[in-house]
């Protein structure tokens, strides 16, 4: 079910802060009902892009439309169509969860019984019914994020921006939030623009991923397309006896090019996907006993490495 005919489109979108070009001309297109993962290290330009697309920051150049409205010229229409949970869980510690929702609903012009029903339903949906009348300062990080999501959804937006929604959350809260975001897109047709620095998050949630680095999109596609660009899986074998490492090396070289492996193991990047059974059969034929055989599928980190020359982790530390 798709609720909006228009998603997000940016052409040459730019933002300059004095001497720093935070976003250096990006082109992207997010289809209605799609979850788009915007992946990159801290400072890559993710949040700046979100701020421009949500009308909080005027672009320095280029053009973008959200839900069919120009972000630079039709700010109020864009805001009416979108919900956003920005990087900071922007909550007032002295208000309760229900009071936050009431304020947000009222500012969107929702009143009376409709507002009451909506607040109850959203609190229930994000699992905060029992905590709804508690002040937010007593909430855990996960509860704050869930309330943040409920606030973003109060006016039933067709497009949802989530700026690093799971940063700092424990694995359980993270999974719960992923489930809810997935459900919103799947069941309600909400278009989701999700920024993240977690590869796993983009991999699990996103239909398509854009990788941004130094303000530019360096790769875009579905997670499997991107990994396929990197290519082939790697097989790593640990021989039962360390003396057989040399024989193992000779055997594996028949299946692909040598690549980095743990000490005591040998690894090759396979020439073709179906090669693993052949590797196992060859080991058997050569009577070479393996203590461990590992198959590594290419990850988004490999994609990041291939496109930028750095690992995502390394980019964080820069």
């Amino acid at each position: 079910m798709s609720r909006s005919d228009e998603g997000i489109e940016a052409i040459g979108l730019r933002r300059q802060f004095k001497d720093v070009e935070a976003v250096a001309g990006i082109d992207l297109r997010v289809l209605p009902g799609e979850i788009y993962g915007f992946l990159g290290p801290n400072g890559a330009g993710k949040s700046t892009t979100v701020h421009m697309l949500t009308t909080l920051l005027p672009p320095s150049g280029g053009r973008a439309t959200v839900a069919g409205f120009d972000v630079a010229k039709q700010g109020s229409q864009v805001r009416a169509a979108i919900g956003a949970a920005l990087q900071e869980a922007a909550l007032d510690p002295f208000l309760t969860g229900a009071e936050h929702l009431r304020l947000q609903a009222s500012l969107h012009g929702i009143r009376g019984d409709e507002r009451k029903r909506l607040i109850g339903r959203l609190l229930d949906r994000v699992g905060l019914t029992s905590a709804g009348n508690r002040k937010v300062r007593a909430y855990s990080g996960g509860m704050k994020r869930r309330l943040d999501l409920a606030l973003a959804l109060i006016h039933d937006p067709s497009i949802l921006f989530l700026d690093e929604p799971t940063t700092g959350l424990d694995p359980q809260s993270r999974t719960a939030l992923w489930d809810e975001v997935g459900r919103l897109a799947r069941d309600e047709g909400v278009t989701v623009f999700l920024t993240t620095q977690y590869l796993e998050e983009a991999d699990v949630l996103a239909d398509r991923v854009g990788i941004i680095d130094h303000g530019r999109i360096v790769a875009e596609g579905t997670p499997s397309q991107l990994k396929a660009q990197i290519g082939k899986p790697t097989v790593e074998v640990v021989p039962e006896s360390p003396d057989e490492l040399e024989r193992l090396r000779e055997l594996l070289r028949r299946f692909g090019a040598e690549t980095a492996a743990r000490p005591g193991a040998f690894a090759v990047q396979l020439d073709g996907h179906g090669a693993l059974p052949e590797v196992v059969r060859a080991l058997d034929t050569e009577n070479l006993r393996a203590a461990q055989i590992n198959l590594h599928e290419p990850s988004l980190d490999d994609v990041f490495l291939a496109k930028t020359g750095r690992t995502l982790e390394g980019a964080e530390e820069e």
């Binding site: 109020s76 920005l86 869980a89 922007a90 007032d92 500012l107 969107h108 012009g109 606030l151």
Partner: peptide
């Protein structure tokens, strides 16, 4: 504090 926590941005995203 509202500016620092982003609460002002939240309000800015409403029709206020």
């Amino acid at each position: 504090r509202d500016i620092d926590t982003g609460f002002l941005n939240r309000l800015a995203l409403t029709p206020v």
